[in-house]
Write a protein that binds this DNA or RNA. Structure first.
Length: 552
RNA sequence: GGCCCGUUGGUCAAGCGGUUAAGACUCCGGCCUCUCACGCCGGCGACGGGAGUUCGAUUCUCCCACGGGUCACCA
C-alpha cells in the first residue's frame, strides 16, 4: 500500500506539513514552572458546578505560577450544540469571577494560539491526520452503522470486548488504494480510524492527583475524524493541548478510561504528554429509589439536582465569593485551616496545591455552604455587601434594587448593625435571603410577622408604648436608653431581670423580655431581630415614632 | 461483564508503621444575653470485611464487598 497516495487521496486539500503548524505555535516563553491550563467545555447550554470546580483549579494553577489560563470551546459534536451556549458559558464564568488570559470571548477569540473553537480548527487536525495516514498509522473506514452494530452484537454474544479492532477491523484496514478510491467516488461516507497495535502491553500514566495509573494499552481502532471531517474528543484533545502548549490537563475522572487512547496518540505523534489531573466527581446524598430508608451517595444529576447548575447559584443570590470559598474547601483539604489562620485574606492569596486535592467524590453539602456563606459575607465590609447585593437585585429583584438605591445611607448603616463588637453578627447568607431579612428597614417592605399579643395583653401594650414614647429621647446612648427601658419595666410590674421572673413568675406580670419583645415587634415586625437601640438609629426618629405610635 | 478509580463519624476531612485517630459542618447540652443571631465550653459519632508482612497496622501487600466511572462517528 502506498500510504502517501492514500493520504493524498483522503486529504487532497491539505498542503501543510506538521512542521508548518508547529512553527505557527511556538513554545510559550514563560517563567520556570509556569502552568498553562484550560477548560474545554462543550457548548450544551448547561453550565454546571463541575465546570467551575475544574475551572478554579486551572485558574489557580496558572495564575499562581505566572502561567496562562485559557478557554477552549469543544464544539466537535454538532448534534449537541445549543444556540447561544457559548455566551451562556462565558457569562457564567464571568459572573463567578473566572478570568481567562486567552481563548474564546463574547466578541471572538483572543490570543495567539487559536482559533479556540475546535470546529474552526478542522484544517489543523487534517494536517496531522494526513501525516498519520502517510505513516500507515491511520486509515479510512467505510463501515456503516448497521455493520458496526452487527459486529457489536457478535462480540456481545461471544463475550468479547466491543469495538473495532483486530479481526473486526481487517476488512477496512487493508483496503487497496483502488478500493478506497472506488468507495470515495461512490460517495460512501468514511471515518478515519487509528490503526492500533495489537501487541498487548501495560501503560503507566502519571496523574498529578492520583499518582501512577496502570492500564492495558489501547488496542481499539478508535475514530480520529468523524465522517464530517471533525475530530473526536480524543484526537482534538491531543492536537490542541499540544499545540496550545498546555502543561496540565485538568478534567473529570470520567476521562481516565480513555487515557490509553490519548497516550497512544501522543506517542504516535511524537509529542510529550501534558501532566494529567483527573478530578473527583461531585456527588450528592439521596435516598435510594429501591429502599427509601437507605441513603445513597450518587453523582449529581443534571435532571434531578438544581444545585448542580451554576444558574441556580445565580438565581438564589449565592455570592461568587461564597461559591469560591466553598469549592476551595472541597478542593484543598487545608483550605479551612488556612482561612481560620488568615481571616482577612482574599482567597486568591491561598497557596493552592495539587498535592492537597481530594481524590474521592465530594458531596455537595448545602449546610456547609450556608455556613461558609455566613462567614464569607460576614467578613465583607458594608459597602462591598451593598454593591454585591444591589447588583444581584438589579437582575433578580427590581423592587429591592430600587429600595437600595433610594436609601443607600440607611442600608449601609443597617448592614453595619451588630458589626462593631468583637463578635460580629452573621445574618446574611444569600442576596435573596438578605432581601427578606432586611425588609423591616424600609417602610415599603416592612410587615408584621410576629404577634404582639403573645407578649402582653392589649391594655398593657397601650400603656407600655405610651410610657415609652413619653420618655423616648432619640439622642440617648445605648446605656441611657436601656436604663429607661428598665425603669419602665419596673414601673409596670415586670421583672427587670429575666432570672427573677423565671424563679418567681407569680410575682411579676412578665419580664423585661416581654417588654423588649414588644418593642422589637413594633419596630421590626418580629420578636427576633438585632439590637433595638441600633436598629432605632438606623431607622431614624421619625420612623421609630411612627411605628411605635400605632400601638400607643 | 471487561478495564479503571475510590472506601476514616451523617457530611467534608487530617493522618503518610507506634496518636487518648485532628479539625470543620450538622445535631444535642450548657454558658453569655433584652430576643434572635454571633461567640465560647462540652457531648454524640469513624478507620467496609478477611488474610498476610511486621514486635506493632487506619497507614504496606493480596483477596472480597460496596460505591463510582467507562466501554459511541458524545464530550
Amino acid at each position: 500500500m502506498d500510504y502517501n497516495a492514500l493520504a493524498q487521496l483522503l486529504f487532497p486539500d491539505v498542503t501543510q506539513q506538521p512542521e508548518d503548524i508547529e512553527a505557527q505555535f511556538p513554545q510559550r516563553q514563560l517563567p520556570e514552572g509556569a502552568c498553562v491550563t484550560r477548560i474545554g467545555p462543550s457548548p450544551t447550554g448547561f453550565v454546571h458546578l463541575g465546570n467551575l470546580y475544574n475551572a478554579i483549579i486551572g485558574e489557580r494553577l496558572a495564575h499562581q505560577s505566572g502561567g496562562v489560563f485559557y478557554l477552549r470551546i469543544e464544539d466537535t459534536d454538532n448534534k449537541r450544540e445549543v444556540e447561544g451556549a457559548v455566551e451562556t458559558l462565558i457569562n457564567a464564568m464571568d459572573y463567578f469571577g473566572v478570568h481567562f488570559d486567552e481563548g474564546a470571548t463574547a466578541d471572538g477569540d483572543k490570543g495567539a494560539y487559536g482559533p479556540y473553537r475546535q470546529r474552526q480548527r478542522a484544517g489543523i487536525y487534517h494536517v496531522f491526520a494526513k501525516h498519520l495516514v502517510e505513516r500507515g498509522l491511520a486509515y479510512p473506514c467505510f463501515l456503516t452503522e448497521e455493520e458496526i452494530q452487527a459486529i457489536r452484537e457478535k462480540q456481545m454474544a461471544n463475550k468479547e470486548d466491543p469495538g473495532i479492532y483486530g479481526v473486526y477491523a481487517q476488512k477496512n484496514r487493508w483496503l487497496t488504494l483502488d478500493e478506497v478510491k472506488a468507495n470515495i467516488d461512490a460517495g460512501k461516507p468514511w471515518v478515519l480510524r487509528y490503526k492500533a497495535d495489537m501487541e498487548p502491553r501495560k501503560i503507566f500514566v502519571h496523574d498529578d492527583i492520583r499518582g501512577c495509573i496502570e492500564m492495558p494499552r489501547n488496542f481499539v481502532d478508535f475514530v480520529l475524524l468523524k465522517s464530517d471531517g471533525i475530530p473526536t474528543y480524543h484526537f482534538a484533545h491531543v492536537v490542541d493541548d499540544h499545540l496550545m502548549r498546555s502543561t496540565h490537563v485538568i478534567r473529570g475522572e470520567e476521562w481516565i478510561s480513555s487515557l490509553p487512547m490519548h497516550v497512544e496518540l501522543f506517542d504516535a505523534l511524537g509529542w510529550e504528554q501534558p501532566k494529567y489531573c483527573h478530578t473527583a466527581t461531585l456527588m450528592k446524598i439521596d435516598v435510594s429509589e429501591d429502599d427509601p430508608e437507605k441513603q445513597i451517595k450518587r453523582k449529581l444529576s443534571k435532571r434531578k439536582d438544581p444545585e448542580l447548575a451554576l444558574a441556580y447559584y445565580q438565581k438564589e443570590g449565592i455570592s461568587r465569593d461564597v461559591v469560591w470559598e466553598f469549592l476551595l474547601t472541597l478542593l484543598n483539604s487545608n483550605y479551612e485551616e488556612w482561612r481560620i489562620a488568615n481571616p482577612e485574606a482574599s482567597y486568591m492569596d491561598f497557596p493552592y496545591s495539587i498535592e492537597k486535592m481530594s481524590i474521592s467524590g465530594a458531596l455537595v453539602d448545602m449546610d456547609k455552604l450556608r455556613d461558609i456563606a455566613k462567614d464569607t459575607i460576614g467578613r465583607m465590609d458594608a459597602q462591598t455587601v451593598y454593591d454585591n447585593w444591589l447588583s444581584w437585585c438589579s437582575e433578580y429583584n427590581e423592587e429591592f434594587a430600587a429600595l437600595l438605591k433610594k436609601y443607600p445611607e440607611r442600608t449601609l448603616a443597617a448592614l453595619n448593625v451588630g458589626k462593631s463588637g468583637k463578635k460580629p453578627r452573621k445574618d446574611i447568607e444569600t442576596w435573596k435571603q438578605a432581601c427578606d431579612f432586611m425588609s423591616f428597614y424600609y417602610d415599603e417592605t416592612f410587615k408584621p410577622e410576629d404577634d404582639m399579643d403573645s407578649q402582653a395583653d392589649k391594655e398593657t401594650q397601650k400603656k407600655f408604648f405610651a410610657k415609652y414614647l413619653a420618655t423616648y429621647d432619640h439622642a440617648d446612648d445605648s446605656a441611657a436608653w436601656f436604663d429607661k427601658v428598665k425603669a419602665i419595666t419596673d414601673e409596670m410590674g415586670f421583672a427587670v431581670k429575666p432570672k427573677d421572673y423565671k424563679k418567681e413568675p407569680e410575682k411579676f406580670k412578665g419580664s423585661i423580655v416581654h417588654i423588649t419583645n414588644m418593642l422589637r415587634i413594633a419596630l421590626t415586625g418580629r420578636a427576633n431581630a438585632p439590637d433595638i437601640h441600633e436598629v432605632s438609629h438606623v431607622l431614624g426618629e421619625d420612623i421609630v415614632r411612627a411605628r411605635l405610635s400605632k400601638w400607643a
